[in-house]
Design a protein around this nucleic acid. Structure first.
Lengths: 194, 194
DNA sequence: GACAAACTGTACCGTTCGGTACATATAAAA
DNA sequence: TTTTATATGTACCGAACGGTACAGTTTGTC
């Protein structure tokens, strides 16, 4: 069974929304760029918002899937994986179609508290934080909650900075900063571990 | 001389754009919410984009002004000011109308390379980085460039995370992470300074 | 080949978009 | 008081917005 027209639509819409933005992308533009008729679109999704939500759900799945897989390839030991996070991000930042994080942008355009698009974006970040927490725990962090939250700050900061000021060096800085806070968390400060 | 109608417009438009977004805010909405006639608006600004740019320039000025002033109030010694950055941010995050960074959101909506709105947003971040660099230098950091770039990551990460996951604790985490990387920069690692 | 499901093209709906035309009002400066 | 600059209200422009109606075409299945 070939990929359904529905999946094809979501996949293509995802790329277009990512590249052009949500409000700035009209349904007619989606018709023109996907080659899928508007009638079909509204057969699969009752509103533009539902299509956006489907695109965000797909993005969440694809992105976290890629990130975790890449990190597992790049490093084996948990402490090393905490740093490999930023090596994976570096690859992302240097893709020529890199344009920040889709969820940060979605939450920027749909700011109402409790709006499904904003809620979905927040959930994505929570899942990302959970993954970092998992890594931090396996690495033997003294306070994995805290370490994960601190690393998340570096991840988000790197994403935004790589977009606004360019990708070069950002991951390296984030990695170095991460090393500092990881050292603190694992060694409980500058005291020798024994 | 009273504040000109033009300044009043930019000030009010700034708040509305910040709260509702750029594409989502039509000129008619601005007329309704500011009480300023559309004719006047287009006498002062030839396009909506020019009005947005004026609002961003005002925001840049107001925000950096507030931030630096607040930091100078909160701490006197340069090393302490590097940490006070996050105390000031914490106050911002807990304002009930906090809605992330206007420039991150602007760059999210106007993604074209070289678009004036995106360029203005990038410039704001560059100026923020310059300020951090200045503080880092005065604090005697070994590599003020690097420290400033790392702190900027924490600042941006805190802004985004406070918006998406809520303000509580974010600044504390950022502050703790900042302390770790500042210690490294000032002491050149865990080695004693002498 | 028949049938149903899925997809397409086009025309259209009311609304809103950014932006303009124009005639009127207000208010300070001369 | 007349002038001049600046504000206003309203009506409007063509285009694009999200979304619908409907008739016709392709597609896989029995």
């Amino acid at each position: 069974m070939r990929p359904s027209k529905r999946d094809e639509l979501v996949q293509k819409a995802l790329k277009i929304f990512y590249r052009r933005g949500f409000h700035a992308t009209g349904m007619d533009k989606l018709v023109a760029e996907t080659g899928i008729s508007k009638t079909s679109m509204y057969k699969h999704f009752r509103t533009k918002e539902e299509l956006i939500l489907a695109a965000l759900r797909l993005r969440d799945q694809q992105f976290r899937n890629w990130l975790t897989r890449r990190i597992e390839e790049l490093a084996k030991a948990p402490e090393e994986r905490l740093l490999a996070v930023f090596d994976a991000l570096d690859e992302w930042f240097h893709q020529d179609d890199y344009a920040s994080c889709m969820f940060i942008k979605a939450a920027s355009e749909y700011q109402d508290q409790g709006h499904p698009i904003r809620a979905t974006s927040a959930e994505h970040k929570r899942l990302l934080a959970d993954y970092l927490h998992d890594l931090a725990g396996k690495a033997g962090a003294g306070d994995p909650d805290k370490l994960a939250r601190q690393l998340l700050l570096l991840v988000e900061g790197a994403i935004v900075t790589a977009y606004l000021l360019g990708p070069d060096g950002v991951s390296g800085d984030a990695r170095a900063a991460a090393a500092a806070i990881i050292d603190r968390s694992l060694a409980n400060g500058c005291l020798p571990t024994k």
